[in-house]
């Protein structure tokens, strides 16, 4: 099977992002990394390839130079080809919907269920709609089946097993395993793989959903310290506070 993993470069999510005076995220000095959910998707696709054969490609939207390090990182952990889509101001789903058919034919398109920067969880489902393909969201595992795949989907209540024909789009959540580390050899081999660019004339960003405002999460308020000397007094004070707030 031809497997395609859509990846997005995001600011390192282990670093706290602050907003500047104009309310924009201050990303200077933060290392760009591959979105964690996309790394899960790449690992899942790679394991599927290792078990069932096929090829894994990665695709991203944006400038090759800006994304090269992330794409080469993907090439060192399972992908054999990498593509960038140059699509002007188009949003990711529109750019991918135009870029993917131009790049090749794929049986399964993997997307991370969301990105760790804006967490909108839109790209996979909108991409599937634009390409008129079936989509299964929140996928934890997949197996080949006649004419398609059997996938394990995470739901709010538990899990559901879903059959889906190929080609299809899957959005991936964190599976039980971690993405692999590159080997020294694969890392060096990845340096030599050419990365192709597909330039498309994608429609401009839709205004059906737009970002109105970015705000920082509210800071945690300082807690209340109960410093009574006797345990009984401390318990009485704590209970009093809970009763005042109608929590007990």
């Amino acid at each position: 099977m031809e497997l395609l993993v859509c990846v997005k470069q995001v600011p390192d999510d282990s670093v706290t992002v602050t907003l500047d005076a104009s309310g924009k995220p201050n990303l200077g000095g933060i290392t760009p990394v591959v979105n964690a959910f996309d790394t899960y998707a790449l690992e899942m696709a790679t394991r599927f390839k290792e078990a069932n054969g096929g090829n894994v490609s990665v695709i991203t939207v944006g400038d090759l130079k800006e994304n090269e390090k992330s794409l080469r990182s993907c090439l060192s952990v399972g992908a054999s080809t990498a593509i960038t889509v140059s699509a002007g101001d188009a949003d990711a789903a529109c750019a991918l919907a135009c870029g993917i058919p131009a790049a090749g034919t794929y049986d399964v398109i993997f997307c991370g269920s969301e990105s760790t920067d804006v967490s909108a969880a839109q790209t996979g489902i909108r991409l599937a709609a634009a390409l008129n393909l079936p989509v299964v969201t929140n996928v934890l595992a997949l197996e080949p089946a006649d004419g398609g795949l059997t996938v394990k989907q995470e739901t709010e209540e538990g899990y559901r097993t879903v059959s889906v024909p190929t080609p299809c789009v899957l959005t991936i959540v964190k599976p039980a395993y971690d993405p692999r580390y590159p080997t020294m050899k694969s890392k060096m081999a990845a340096r030599k793989i050419p990365i192709s660019t597909v330039t498309v004339d994608a429609p401009a960003a839709s205004d059906a959903a737009k970002c109105v405002k970015i705000s920082a999460p509210a800071q945690r308020q300082a807690g209340v310290k109960i410093q009574e000397k006797e345990a009984a007094d401390a318990v009485a004070k704590a209970m009093g506070m809970l009763i005042d707030r109608k929590l007990v």
Binding site: Y181, P182, T183, M184, K185, M188
Partner: peptide, 20 residues
């Protein structure tokens, strides 16, 4: 085992014998 898988044991193997 993880380090071996990553190739850390063989960093000094010369290229002519299959090293990096």
């Amino acid at each position: 085992e993880k380090a071996a898988e990553m190739g850390l044991n063989a960093l000094e193997v010369p290229e002519e014998y299959g090293g990096l």
